[in-house]
């Protein structure tokens, strides 16, 4: 009998510890989860609801069910006979955005990979300085950085002035308010997102492998594509995703450098909540953008899983 009693006391103590831990954890998590759930996740639900409503006359919504927002994305309703006619306007904005984001991703990769590799081969102390230099712009205001880019690429910007003074061109190159400007702006905005993950995967790379590669392949380009790139692949993929996703949803870059004429998805969505005042359509467009982003992440997760099972 005396043996049983302390055992049940011990069991009670174990149970009590577990309960205390659960309660403590719940209280500790409560503020962060409440704020994010209420202010970031709940609104997404509202957006889903709004996308199925009818636009209000002065912005906002009228509580009447409608799938018009999604229909409007692809078709235009003929005002006379009420038939649906295919409308490429919005689809082309999406395609343009995807194209620009892909282009910027490729551009950032071409610039970012060599930079990451260069940093990874530096001695440790220098690496930290380089990394700091790459990270710092990320923490400065994107609006101001884009504005600064606008200053140097416009017709009277220093790039044109220098090119003209050098006698390379006689009249200024028009870059600003073109797709090129948006493309340059996107690379410039998100370049650090490409460099950092590639650096992180290269940092772990054992460079004696590279040296071993010279024994086997003897050629720099071959070593690069057969040894280094495969090993840095996780970082390259992460970098591409980190550039593509914010590029796709960019707002400031096309707004300032595209002059508001060359729209991307982000501006189109914002417009629906401003001047155009079609909240349901804006909500639907935002959800389609989010679906695209989730699709990219899912494809990546799928590819990662397949890669893992191939290796295993």
């Amino acid at each position: 009998m005396s043996g049983r009693e302390p055992q049940s006391a011990l069991a009670a103590a174990i149970e009590q510890n577990k309960r205390t831990e659960r309660v403590t954890r719940a209280w500790l998590l409560a503020p962060a989860l409440t704020i994010i759930l209420a202010i970031s996740i709940l609104p997404l639900g509202i957006t889903v609801v709004y996308s199925f409503l009818t636009p209000g006359t002065y912005g906002g919504v009228t509580w009447e069910f409608s799938t018009d927002s999604y229909v409007q994305f692809l078709f235009q309703r003929d005002i006379f006979d009420d038939t649906l006619v295919f409308n490429s306007a919005y689809v082309s904005i999406f395609l343009r955005s995807i194209g620009l984001a892909l282009g910027a991703t490729l551009g950032a990769l071409i610039l970012g990979f060599p930079t990451a590799y260069f940093i990874a081969t530096k001695p440790r102390e220098q690496r930290n300085i380089w990394l700091f230099l790459i990270t710092l712009p990320f923490w400065t205001n994107l609006l101001i950085r884009t504005y600064a880019m606008l200053l140097i690429i416009r017709d009277e910007g220093i790039i044109n002035i220098m090119l003209m003074k050098a006698g390379i061109i006689s009249s200024p190159l028009t870059i600003l308010y073109t797709d090129t400007a948006v493309f340059i702006g996107l690379i410039y905005s998100f370049l650090p997102f490409m460099v950092l993950p590639i650096y992180a995967s290269l940092e772990k790379l054992d460079f004696s492998l590279v040296e071993a590669g010279y024994d086997l392949y003897a050629n720099r380009l071959k070593v690069l594509f057969h040894v280094i790139v495969p090993l840095a692949k996780p970082g390259i993929v992460a970098g591409c995703i980190l550039v593509f996703i914010p590029g796709l949803g960019a707002y400031i870059t096309p707004e300032l450098l595209g002059g508001g004429k060359k729209l991307m998805i982000g501006n189109m969505i914002a417009m629906q909540f401003g001047a155009s005042r079609n909240w349901p359509f804006g909500s639907a467009a935002a959800l389609i953008l989010m679906a695209l982003v989730i699709l990219v992440l899912l494809l990546n997760a799928l590819a990662a899983r397949r890669g893992a099972s191939n290796n295993g």
Binding site: P6, L10, A12, A13, I14
Partner: peptide, 17 residues
């Protein structure tokens, strides 16, 4: 850590939990 089973005493006092 708490044991899964058994007891610990310190100078004849049970301190297990």
């Amino acid at each position: 850590e708490l044991p899964t089973n058994g007891s610990i005493s310190l100078q004849d006092q049970d301190i297990t939990d």
